[in-house]
Write a protein that binds this DNA or RNA. Sequence first.
DNA 1: ACTATACGGAACTCGCCAGTTCTGGAACTC
DNA 2: GAGTTCCAGAACTGGCGAGTTCCGTATAGT
Lengths: 201, 201
Amino acid sequence: MLEERQRKGGRPRDATRDADILEAARAVLAERGYERTTMAEIAARAGAGKATVYRRWASKAELVIDVLACSGSLAITVDDVPDTGSLRGDLAALRALKSRDESTWRALVGLVSELPHSPELARVVDQRVVGPRVALIRGLLERARDRGELLPGVNVDLLSRVPSSMIAYRLLVTHEPLDPEFLRSLSEDIVVPLATGRPRD
Amino acid sequence: MLEERQRKGGRPRDATRDADILEAARAVLAERGYERTTMAEIAARAGAGKATVYRRWASKAELVIDVLACSGSLAITVDDVPDTGSLRGDLAALRALKSRDESTWRALVGLVSELPHSPELARVVDQRVVGPRVALIRGLLERARDRGELLPGVNVDLLSRVPSSMIAYRLLVTHEPLDPEFLRSLSEDIVVPLATGRPRD
DNA sequence: ACTATACGGAACTCGCCAGTTCTGGAACTC
DNA sequence: GAGTTCCAGAACTGGCGAGTTCCGTATAGT
């Protein structure tokens, strides 16, 4: 975002427009994808003029990067997930927490084809979208290891990427909804048995 | 593809141009993505004129659909994978077979953002790209079940989607290569332990 | 009051690309 | 050889969207 110094007097920027534009951009991005997203539509949906948008962001690319940098990040960390005493319980607690995560993944849909052409966008996606979500699962797995729940020889690196992969695949490729049953199976039929070797309870 | 009837005489179509154009389209698609793919570049790379392209396909969308329909399909089926006597062995045999599968997944990169806007494209992707690959793993899992290798209560539906999900995620989102070590871990650290409950050998 | 900058909105430039048409020539049928 | 359809290549058309500029107006400092 451009942070111009205001020389003398003049009307100050309306700070509320920033958030409105980012929110509009996020919405358009999620439903149209990067290429089909137009600055005109973002401005119109934010109730702003295009000039107001370009006063804050130098280009469409920078605005989109800021959408992810500002609102794409996952608020939840390992410490927000209560320690229930078992990996299975922790994963259930996590599912109860992140109910509104889907829209960031949806915004990613249209960005996927841009990633190979924009190193900066790829970096932001990795830092703010992919990284935190993988790290969250990894944190829960390490918590399970401290409890002694983990089987010896479990590939934590790979296993912590399984949920993100399957969620992304579902939303990006097959376009099925993230229903609770799917998320439950993901935890209890995949992650828990692989980590602890306990297929049923 | 347009299959016009040739009325009377005239120079016959050069059938070799069809394959050249499809191959060029596939290549451009994989490295540029749908929106950045131009008919001019496809024609140039195929050493053809744009008129020659439009004589065979009515639009860019139809050409792209045909790229997947003609060359995106997986040639391998369950019957091509030798029965080695164990799931672990079958998966190793499968890895030896599909060495050149990566380019179809790469072509999918740029198509992902188009899927929500083109039902026909989504149908072709599901039928020719996603379906066969999931079915292949499912077939190997069912072979393992017939052998009595499978643990009771394994979620075959979900498990058969794990490899496709993780491969797609790697190529679409994180852009890491499909190195043999990753594919081996996918089989031996994820699929085999989950299916058979045998983490190590 | 004066000045400088903000605002929404609309008109504008400019380049890109899908799709069409033309050219000079080649290949095939009758 | 007359007529037709093909070929590669290049010129052309039309629409769309990024980014700019201008309008009339609003809101601040001095």
